[in-house]
């Protein structure tokens, strides 16, 4: 990638080359052969270089006291000061604990839903009914968080359908959207509504890959529905379940940034502050860029460790996880 134009020129007529340049020549021939392919990757490489790699270098702000006028190059270095402050900041710890609690609630209440739905859908014999149901449950995946939260607001909010109904019967109302104690369950319900249907796809594919003759043989041997589920279906889904679990654990520190952001005003900072919103509010909103970047870097490094650890765990269970050993 780094060498320029001269190499792409066709070679001079062949003459006996010294042994040392043979590999170089072969390299040139490959470059000549693959130059269109390399050129094709260029736009993506440039975009990622500018918008993914330069920001990685920009993480140096986390070790600076950044100000806009001095920029990356001239802002004074402060070493680990920002991280020191972060660890002494109760709001940061609160954001971390919120993140972990919401993640844990989602692991327990969200994760099994797509698996269960896949098992039910797989039992639907009528092809048209099945494709109708699948189309409907995939749909919310394509909605924005603003839209999903708006839908929940209209259903469960203070002026929403639920409370209108309660009021009409003279019962006590409950504005779930602004109740800090209910927030972790609310965001989990929103995640289920938006993504659980889409999550079914991978599990359905795993189910389709199970050898049907296993079921027939088991049935012939007198295994009932539940025994077949336990001894054939679930083992057949094991690889995918482990993979999804690895992804979920690796993403444990990422809990719907936009989802939290758009509900912050309604439910308050205490309930909705997570690591991502912490970095955003301190960094961008309060112009404390270095502090926000430090929080972001803290999260990024921790997430990377989590992904690698989760993969190790998958390997320990004899599964592939994200990548093979």
């Amino acid at each position: 990638m780094t060498t320029g134009g001269t190499a792409t020129k066709p070679d001079a007529p062949p003459r006996p080359a010294p042994a040392a340049t043979v590999t170089q020549r072969r390299w040139r021939i490959r470059l000549l052969r693959d130059r269109s392919l390399l050129l094709m990757t260029l736009p993506a490489v440039v975009l990622l270089a500018v918008f993914a790699y330069v920001p990685m270098l920009g993480l140096v702000t986390a070790f600076q006291s950044y100000d806009i006028y001095s920029g990356f190059w001239h802002s004074p270095l402060t070493g680990l000061d920002n991280f020191q402050r972060l660890l002494d900041d109760p709001i940061f710890w609160h954001a971390l604990s919120n993140t972990l609690v919401i993640s844990a609630v989602q692991l327990v209440l969200y994760f099994p839903v797509p698996i269960a739905l896949a098992l039910v859908f797989n039992e639907v014999v009528n092809a048209r009914l099945r494709s109708f149901v699948q189309s409907v449950v995939y749909l919310p995946h394509f909605f924005s968080w603003v839209l999903v939260v708006t839908v929940f607001q209209e259903m469960l909010g203070g002026a929403g359908a639920l409370n209108t109904m309660l009021r009409r019967h003279g019962w006590a109302t409950w504005d779930i959207m602004t109740d800090p104690d209910a927030f972790k369950y609310l965001v989990t319900a929103q995640a289920v509504w938006k993504e659980a249907g889409w999550g079914v796809i991978v599990f359905l594919a795993a189910l389709a890959a199970i050898d049907q003759s296993l079921y027939e043989a088991a049935a012939a041997d007198g295994a009932g529905r539940w025994r077949r589920l336990w001894h054939i279906t679930l083992p057949g889904m094991r690889g995918v379940i482990v993979l999804m679990l690895v992804l979920r654990l690796g993403n444990a520190l990422t809990v719907g940034f936009e989802q939290m952001l758009v509900q912050r005003q309604a439910v308050g900072r205490d309930a909705s502050e997570v690591l991502d919103t912490f970095a955003y509010y301190y960094g961008v909103v309060n112009n404390n860029f270095s502090y926000g970047a430090a929080a972001g870097l803290f999260k990024g490094v921790l997430s990377l460790i989590l992904v690698l650890a989760a993969n190790k765990l998958a390997h320990a269970f004899g599964e592939d996880g994200l990548y093979r050993k």
Binding site: M1, W27, R30, L31, R33, D34, L37, L38, T41, A44, V45, L48, V50, F51, A52, Y53, V54, P55, M56, L57, G58, L59, T61, Y66, F72, D276, A279, Y280, G283, V284, F289, G292, A293, G296, L297, K299, G300, L304, V307
Partner: peptide, 28 residues
């Protein structure tokens, strides 16, 4: 093809690690 492993690695790294919100904001 020449260099495709290197470029692939260049791409995949960005899936696992990113500069994050603040540095991206500052760059943009």
């Amino acid at each position: 093809s020449l260099g495709h492993r290197g470029i692939l690695l260049f791409l995949v790294v960005t899936m696992f690690f990113s500069g994050g919100l603040i540095p991206t904001f500052l760059v943009v």
